[in-house]
Amino acid sequence: MATILVAFDTLDEGFERIPSDHTLIRPPHGRDFTQEELAALLPEADVLCSVFDIPVRADLIARGGKLRLIANYAVGYNNIDIDYARSRGITVTNTPHSVIAPTAELAMALLLSCSRRIVELDTMIRRSPGVKVAMGRTDRMGLPLAEKTLGIVGYGNIGEAVAMRCRAFGMKVIYYKRHRLSPQEEEAKGITYASLDELLRASDVVSLHTPYSPETHHLIGERELALMPAHAILINTARGAVVDEEALLRALQQGSITAAGLDVFEHNDCPLAELSSLPNVVMTPHVGTQTEDARLKMNHEMLENVARFLAGRTDISRVV
């Protein structure tokens, strides 16, 4: 029998996957456990169910003398001290499948909002209630997607899903990742490999889908932004610190690139205040998976990992 500590408030659906002989510890409905509460509860836990916005650092993990599994409710796991978990022999899982479609859809929503200046035009209308907005035939021109080039940085499951959707809009797709696909895979997917610098120079839209790590910290900085065409759009639904946000702010202010669609931000997902004053920025508060279907599927995927692990199975979404 195992004790399963759930760090965060979540849906009830999916917990039926956990056999009744295990003990579940969940926070009161409507709130997460605090770090202090987790530290007090962890000594008895065999499993910790964590979530992308709750830090699970070494000092917290160290409290779990019996801890065998950290099941993260997210595809990313930079909220967890992976190296320390590995050193303790603790398995870490994530939820890579249920996040693909909703995150790709949000990336498309940000892209379309930027390319057709939806937020800017909507704001114009709202500022003059009941009055027809005068628009010249060449005012506030948008960027059509057909026949334009999309550059995917980090061609994993979500990057591939975005590429598929953009190809339906008639876009050419190039990609960059550390380990290039085979020529056969590239041909089957209708994509072309480019180095990062080549991709930035050639793309009308750059969409970021790389995991966050020390190697990808500020992957897109002042130098990289300067390589992009002045009409280009940057989309980030990956992790905030993949982009140097100060450099991005300057590029947008100076017109080095045309627009940015951002769901994530460098400093604990709190955007720089100056971004809010720019009409060429569309922002959402880290809601890539904020749909009922996605949250339900993530719950099921996380808890299926727990149930399989406790049953001794190896067919889990293991990252460590």
Rank of each mutant, 00 (worst) to 15 (best):
Val173Asn: 00
Arg140Ile: 11
Tyr155Ile: 04
Asn157Met: 15
Asp197His: 12
Glu120Leu: 15
Asp197Ile: 06
Tyr155Phe: 13
Tyr175Cys: 07
Gly156Glu: 06
Ser113Glu: 02
Arg117Lys: 14
Arg180Trp: 11
Gly190Phe: 06
Leu145Gly: 05
Met124Thr: 00
Arg126Tyr: 01
Arg117Asn: 12
Gly190Cys: 08
Tyr155Trp: 02
Gly154Asp: 05
Ala163Val: 01
Asp139Lys: 01
Met141Gly: 07
Lys132Tyr: 13
Leu150Pro: 07
Asp122Pro: 10
Gly136Thr: 08
Arg127Pro: 06
Leu181Ala: 12
Tyr193Phe: 13
Ser128Thr: 13
Val153Gln: 02
Tyr193Val: 06
Gly170Phe: 05
Tyr193Asn: 07
Glu160Asn: 14
Glu187Met: 11
Val119His: 12
Thr192Asn: 00
Met135His: 11
Tyr193Arg: 01
Phe169Asp: 02
Arg137Tyr: 12
Arg116Asn: 11
Arg117Asp: 03
Gly130Ile: 09
Val131Asp: 05
Ser113Tyr: 07
Leu143Trp: 01
Arg140Glu: 01
Glu198Phe: 11
Ala161Ile: 07
Pro144Glu: 11
Ile152Cys: 03
Arg137Lys: 10
Thr192Gly: 03
Ser113Asn: 12
Ser182Asp: 04
Ile152Asn: 08
Tyr155Gln: 04
Thr138Pro: 04
Tyr155Met: 12
Ile191Gly: 02
Leu181Trp: 07
Pro129Asn: 05
Arg117Glu: 09
Arg178Gly: 15
Arg116Ala: 07
Glu185His: 14
Ala194Tyr: 08
Arg178Lys: 13
Ile158Lys: 04
Ile118Gly: 03
Leu111Ala: 11
Lys177Arg: 13
Leu181Glu: 11
Pro183Asp: 04
Thr138Asn: 11
Arg117Val: 11
Thr123Val: 15
Gly130Pro: 05
Arg180Pro: 08
Lys148Trp: 03
Glu187Tyr: 06
Val173Thr: 01
Lys172Met: 06
Ala168Lys: 10
Val162Cys: 00
Gly130Val: 10
Leu143Thr: 13
Ala134Phe: 15
Gly142Leu: 11
Ala146Cys: 13
Ala163Ser: 09
Ala163Gly: 03
Ser128Met: 14
Val153Arg: 03
Ser182Trp: 08
Pro129Met: 05
Leu199Glu: 00
Val133Glu: 07
Cys114Pro: 04
Glu185Pro: 03
Arg137Val: 11
Tyr175Val: 08
Glu186Gly: 11
Pro144Phe: 08
His179Thr: 14
Glu186Met: 12
Leu111Phe: 15
Lys189Ala: 13
Ala188Pro: 00
Met171Lys: 04
Cys114Ser: 08
Lys189Asp: 04
Gln184Ser: 13
Leu143Lys: 09
Leu150Gln: 01
Gly130Tyr: 09
Ser182Thr: 14
Gly159Arg: 05
Arg137Met: 15
Glu186Leu: 10
Leu145Trp: 09
Val131Ile: 15
Arg140Ser: 07
Arg140Thr: 00
Met135Leu: 15
Val119Gln: 12
Arg165Cys: 07
Arg180Met: 12
Gly130Cys: 02
Leu112Pro: 09
Arg137Pro: 06
Pro129Ile: 01
Val162Trp: 05
Lys189Leu: 14
Val162Ser: 03
Pro144Met: 05
Ala161Asn: 08
Met141Tyr: 04
Pro183Tyr: 03
Arg126Cys: 00
Met164Cys: 05
His179Gly: 11
Arg165Lys: 10
Leu200Met: 05
Thr138Lys: 13
